[in-house]
Design a binder for these strands. Structure first.
Length: 104
DNA sequence: CCACTGACGCGTA
DNA sequence: ATACGCGCCAGTG
């Protein structure tokens, strides 16, 4: 299956200053949220893939530990205009981007 | 070649 | 309210 490829395509569509979730992408692709995490893990190194814009359903930067440094992910997100409070995105739902929007 | 592991989320007890 | 199990793909030992 090209599940990973599908995930990459979606993640690349996430606009700057926006974030998405594992569950939303998984639902859109019709797969399990786990696959999203695994795919993103593989995506690390692919500069074309903004893996830092994907967080869990609580808006928490669960994947930050996979970056070069624990603060890197938060740093990038803040750099894109987001506000992080205690590893959690503030006004998360206001910055939430749903894959369904890519249909538009 | 077989088995384990790794960025999650939801339903059920 | 908290705890546990299942779903799912690819890479590595």
């Amino acid at each position: 299956m090209q599940s990973y490829e599908e995930v990459f395509e979606i993640v690349k569509l996430i606009p700057e200053g926006k974030v998405s979730t594992y569950g939303a992408i998984a639902k859109y692709l019709g797969t399990s949220p786990r696959v999203i995490g695994w795919a993103l893990n593989s995506s690390l190194g692919n500069k074309k893939i903004p893996a830092h814009r994907v967080v869990n359903r609580h808006g928490i930067l669960t994947g930050k530990i996979h970056f070069a440094t624990a603060d890197l992910m938060q740093k990038i997100l803040e750099s894109e205009g987001l506000k992080i409070e205690n590893d959690q995105i503030e006004n998360f739902k206001s910055h939430f981007w749903d894959p369904s929007l890519s249909l538009l």
